[in-house]
C-alpha cells in the first residue's frame, strides 16, 4: 500500500464509517474493511477504478467531487478521507468545507509544493517541477490547485478548520527528523487530520 495510505490506516479506528473521496481502485477501503471492519463508500469517476472497486467488493459511487457532497448529511461519517486529490479539484476550499461537514473528522493528503526539491527544480531549472509526487508535465497535469503546507495551514486557520494531527513524509517516504522540524521544506507529502 502507498505510504500515505499506510499512515492514514493507522489513524482510523476499528469499525469506523468512512467516505473516501477519489478512492481509486479501492485499495484503502478494502484494506480497512478487512483489517479494521470499517464500513463506507468511495467516490470515483474513473471507469477502470470503478471496475476495480466492483471486483474487490468495495462500495463505490460514481460521483464527481466537483459537484459537491450535497447528497450526504452532516456528520454522516466518522471520517471523510481524500488522498492526493485536493490539488485536482476545482474548488479545494469548498470540498474541504464539505469534508468537515459530512465527516466528524477529515483526513487529507496532498503533495507539498513547498518541498525543497520542487523549489529548487523551479529555481534552478526554471521549469515546472516534476517529481515522484508530481509526475506530470505542465500541459497534462490534473493538479490545478497545488499548495504548500503553509498555504494549507493558513487556510485552515482562517476558515476555522481545526488541525488535529499532521504528518509529513520525505522523499524516501519516511517521516524523518528534518521533515518534522521543517515540514514545509522537507515534507514531500503532507497528511492532515482535521475537523470543523
Amino acid at each position: 500500500m502507498r505510504d500515505d495510505l499506510q499512515l492514514i490506516s493507522d489513524w482510523i479506528p476499528q469499525g469506523a464509517t468512512l467516505l473516501d473521496l477519489g478512492c481509486g481502485d479501492g485499495t484503502l477501503l478494502a484494506w480497512l474493511g478487512e483489517h479494521k471492519q470499517t464500513r463506507g463508500y468511495g467516490l470515483e469517476i474513473n471507469q477502470d477504478n470503478l471496475a476495480a472497486c466492483f471486483e474487490k467488493g468495495v462500495n463505490v459511487l460514481e460521483q464527481d467531487l466537483d459537484s459537491g457532497l450535497g447528497n450526504f448529511q452532516d456528520g454522516r461519517f466518522d471520517y471523510v478521507v481524500m488522498t492526493q486529490a485536493l490539488q485536482a479539484v476545482l474548488r479545494p476550499d469548498q470540498i474541504l468545507n464539505e469534508m468537515v461537514r459530512v465527516g466528524r473528522e477529515a483526513i487529507i493528503t496532498f503533495p507539498n509544493f513547498g518541498h525543497w526539491w520542487v523549489r529548487s527544480y523551479l529555481a534552478f531549472k526554471g521549469r515546472m517541477p516534476v517529481s515522484s509526487a508530481l509526475p506530470y508535465q505542465w500541459y497534462n497535469t490534473p493538479n490545478i490547485h497545488l499548495c504548500t503546507v503553509q498555504d494549507f495551514e493558513t487556510h485552515c486557520r482562517k476558515h476555522n478548520v481545526q488541525i488535529l494531527e499532521r504528518q509529513v513524509i520525505n522523499r524516501h517516504h519516511r517521516s524523518g527528523f528534518l521533515a518534522k522540524l521543517w515540514p514545509n521544506l522537507f515534507g514531500e507529502i503532507a497528511i492532515y487530520r482535521v475537523k470543523a
Partner: peptide
C-alpha cells in the same frame, strides 16, 4: 437512480453506483 442510491447510503446499505 441516485434517489435510490442516496436512500441506500442513508440507510447504511452496501451499494455501488455507475452512471
Amino acid at each position: 437512480s441516485r434517489e435510490i442510491v442516496d436512500g441506500l447510503v442513508h440507510a447504511g446499505r452496501d451499494v455501488s453506483y455507475a452512471e
